[in-house]
Design a protein around this nucleic acid. Structure first.
Lengths: 179, 179
DNA sequence: AAACTATACGGAGACTTCCTCCGGTTCTAC
DNA sequence: GTAGAACCGGAGGAAGTCTCCGTATAGTTT
């Protein structure tokens, strides 16, 4: 990669991240390009579509979540560790309006890298919690991540109620039926 | 309302419903107008924006769900009645790709009528199930509807896996934790 | 039934955003 | 230096949303 290309690539990534946080992932790509000081053509050459850019931005952010999972794998309470981690995932997704929606749309594999990493980290926590008999068998990490994303989505569509995420997560964890 | 206006209003509603089912609620409004045999201006006069049209379409569909709720309120198992109804709500939302997303976005009140009716019908079922001691206290119908919509959203983004809705609903009902 | 007026119609067009294409520029290796 | 591969950038086509206003018509009045 030529030095100028690399420079533009990095600036685009940084500007995209900021723009996603401030305006959500629906922000106009032209704005990102302008702020990065490049033309829209350059943006599209590096990132053929919006999701490719999103994937590139978020894949970097996952390190924190993966680290968190590695720490939590040694926590005392395996089930609690899983839930703490899921809440972290939710909190991260919530930083970027629109991200959870994109993660959910897995029919096309544009953000596959991101999702694969999450499944790996979360899968270990889930397996441990199940082995300890604290979490039902038959539950799969993919479904837990979907549910988490869906709940983030709810929460981000109800910005006036800050507690939405916590309430719905607790609903999912404890169930609706009386235990 | 003038006779021609009423005629166009009805045709638009019918065409919109069909278009929403076939192409999802993101369908181009121009297409709806063309199929209804009217100009785009006429569509926008009757329905100032897309959500106003969606609300008008779906408010009619709610009769079936309200009827279902009235029947279920007399069912033997109060908790089961609630879940059966929630599944019906989900099945209905799933007919129209994009509807659940719109229902979730409650920050603006454009589809308020629809949501108010659902809360009323579901609230009665929930109250009965809670009174019977089968469903946890503290749970609110608004949250259950949000969770249901969120799960529909997941399911509609995973069209290759037809069981997604059922799996996630069962997760929410039974919870993640063991007993 | 003719004239009148409030109401409704419809599509041109301004605006926005996405994405492509290609002439011109710049970096790098020799 | 210089050749040419790699890269840049913005004009512009396509699609969609929504507005505006001249034209057409339904319903009323005489």
């Amino acid at each position: 990669m030529r030095a100028d290309a690399q420079r533009n690539y990095d600036r685009l990534l940084e500007e995209a991240k900021q723009a996603f946080i401030v305006h959500g992932t629906d922000v106009a790509l032209e704005d990102i390009a302008r702020h990065a000081g490049v033309g829209i053509g350059t943006l599209y050459r590096h990132f053929p579509d919006r999701y490719s850019l999103m994937n590139a931005v978020f894949i970097r952010e996952l390190d924190a979540l993966n680290d968190r999972a590695r720490t939590l794998i040694a926590a005392d309470d395996p089930a609690d560790a899983l839930f703490v981690w899921l809440r972290s995932v939710g909190a991260h997704s919530a930083m970027y309006r629109g991200l959870s929606s994109a993660i959910l749309a897995q029919s096309d594999g544009r953000m596959l890298q991101c999702k694969a990493q999450l499944r790996e980290s979360g899968g270990a926590l889930l397996a441990r919690a199940q082995k300890a008999g604290a979490v039902r068998d038959g539950i799969e990490i993919a479904d837990l991540l979907k549910l988490t994303s869906a709940i983030v989505l709810c929460a981000e569509k109800n910005p006036e109620d800050r507690k939405t995420f916590d309430r719905l997560m607790s609903l999912a964890v404890n169930g609706i039926l009386v235990g």
